[in-house]
């Protein structure tokens, strides 16, 4: 589904990603872990097409197409979904109107007719239930005055509505209490299928207790320095990141 080859990127002239290689197949869940500043969120932003990130080398193929050539909205319509670490508040844009517009654009892109009001309402109700999202929040302005947890749940609600092929969850667990974490995870687990894939970016192993990954990668200093299965996450929890940092430095090419 997604093939990342030797991806280098910089922001404001500063190298952030220094050669990422990653392949994600349909039906898989990949966790990307790493210390702060290792480039985890930057990878998410590059994949979603944030403008201030400049790709200097490498390629990203998504479902056979060159992802890097697409505008952010086309990437979204092709099926890339980023659950933001800090979802933005947009006062005055109602959550429901926003979703209706987004869904209509995505369906048009796929050659499907837009849903009529009734169908949309039915779908919205169904997905709200699936991810336990408060109906009152659906009708408010986009994320305005939402608590941290409500914002994250809104991201998962949108994920459920838009049914992307690839979902990237950028530190969705940060700022969530244990109940919210459980609800969000439950939603994600219900949405997992053989046709879609997830990249879960997280600092802590905690989330991975709820959403069990098929693969775990450790990102450090702009590169994936170690890959493994979910056991790797447990090991990291126990030993921290320092041992990996040392290892990474030993393996770093001398200049």
């Amino acid at each position: 589904m997604l093939i990342i080859k030797n991806l280098h990127a910089e922001v404001e002239g500063k190298q952030i990603l220094k050669g990422i290689n990653l392949t994600v197949g349909a039906g898989e869940v990949h966790a990307i872990m790493g210390p702060n500043g290792s480039g985890k969120s930057s990878l998410a932003s590059v994949l979603a097409g944030k403008e201030n990130y400049e790709v200097t080398e490498g390629e990203v193929i998504f479902q056979g197409k060159n992802l890097l050539e697409m505008s952010p909205e086309v990437r979204a319509r092709e099926g890339v979904f980023l659950a933001f670490q800090y979802p933005i508040e947009i006062p005055g844009v109602s959550n429901i109107n926003f979703l209706k517009t987004a869904l209509a654009e995505i369906r048009t892109h796929k050659g499907l007719p837009p849903l009529d009001a009734k169908e949309f309402l039915r779908l919205s109700k169904e997905k709200q239930k699936l991810v336990e999202f408060d109906a009152k929040l659906v009708n408010r302005s986009l994320n305005e005055g939402f608590s941290g947890g409500e914002k994250k749940r809104n991201e998962i609600f949108q994920l459920a509505m838009l049914e992307p092929a690839l979902s990237i969850l950028d530190e969705t667990d940060s700022g969530l209490d244990i109940d919210a974490l459980r609800i969000v995870s439950k939603g994600v687990n219900k949405l997992r299928s053989a046709n879609n894939a997830f990249i879960i970016i997280t600092h802590y192993q905690r989330l991975l207790e709820y959403i069990v990954p098929d693969f775990v990668h450790v990102l450090y200093n702009g590169r994936i320095v170690k890959s493994g299965t979910k056991e790797l996450a447990l090991e990291l929890e126990e030993k921290g990141y320092d041992w990996l940092k040392e290892e990474a430095h030993e393996n770093a090419p001398t200049i």
């Binding site: 979603a48 952010p72 909205e73 979204a76 980023l82 947009i90 844009v93 987004a102 995505i106």
Partner: peptide, 13 residues
């Protein structure tokens, strides 16, 4: 940021 958020949900610029 708001513009990017909306575009990242598939909405045209």
């Amino acid at each position: 940021e708001a513009l990017f958020y909306l575009r990242a949900r598939g909405i045209s610029e």
